[in-house]
């Protein structure tokens, strides 16, 4: 582990409980807004249950998610600029991705076994709308402008999808906020993960909002 990473891990350890709570709360609010947008897009009542939210070092993301790097997932990734630079990744297990596109195209759940190019466009747009709702909520709360890049979709093994954030973003961002959610539609529950990787400027805006002093 290089010196830069050692410093980063030290910073996570030094976050106070109230600082961690503030970061998690921002994630929870964003996820709730994303669920509202998803409901509107799918014309279905989608409830959301935040099952866990925690802050970990970016290199530990994989272990904290599904556990098995060979699990197939769909990931929608955005870089966000405006006030600082940070990153947002939405992950859906592949089985749940198929359910989402079935709902989107009004097909019986279970119809899809693979994703067509049109299905991929749909899941990318679902991720885009959810991510924008998330960013709008954060922008309103923090009073900062957040402008995303074009979303990129990757459908691959978890380990492959996480490779870019770990290798590239890990150079600039030291920790990731993981919001594990369950989207609930009637008796169906499916998992989604929001991974929010804020840079220093966004972290400071969050702490300022909650009137938390940063040493």
């Amino acid at each position: 582990m290089n010196e830069e990473k050692s410093i980063n891990y030290e910073r996570i350890a030094n976050l106070t409980d109230i600082q961690k709570d503030a970061l998690r709360e921002i994630g929870n609010i964003g996820a709730a807004h994303a669920a509202t947008a998803l409901s509107s897009m799918l014309k279905e009542t989608i409830m959301i249950d935040v099952t866990s939210s925690h802050i970990i070092g970016i290199e530990d993301m994989q272990n904290e998610l599904f556990g098995d790097p060979s699990d197939k997932v769909a990931g929608v990734f955005m870089q966000v600029t405006g006030s600082g630079t940070h990153n947002l990744l939405m992950l859906f297990p592949f089985e749940n991705t198929l359910q989402l596109v079935d709902m989107f195209f009004k097909r019986p759940i279970g119809t899809s076994t693979e994703l067509s190019s049109k299905d991929e466009s749909a899941i990318n747009e679902i991720g885009n709308v959810c991510a924008c709702a998330y960013l709008n909520a954060m922008s309103d709360l923090l009073g900062i402008t957040l402008f995303p890049t074009v979303p990129g979709l990757a459908v691959d093994m978890l380990g492959a999808v996480l490779q870019f954030p770990v290798l590239e973003i890990g150079r600039r961002v030291d920790y990731v906020i993981i919001i594990q959610t369950q989207f609930i539609r009637n008796a169906d529950r499916f998992n989604g993960y929001f991974l929010f990787m804020p840079d220093d400027d966004v972290q400071k805006a969050i702490m300022d909002k909650f009137k938390i002093n940063v040493k």
Binding site: A37, M41, V129, C132, A133, N136, L146, F147
Partner: peptide, 25 residues
């Protein structure tokens, strides 16, 4: 037609000449 409805972006769009702004979805 955008998923983003942050005030500054809406104003930028209207200032640029857009006549209306609606939110996705």
């Amino acid at each position: 037609i955008s998923g983003l409805h942050q005030k500054s972006l809406v104003m930028d769009a209207l200032d640029a000449g857009a006549r209306d702004y609606i939110i996705k979805p």
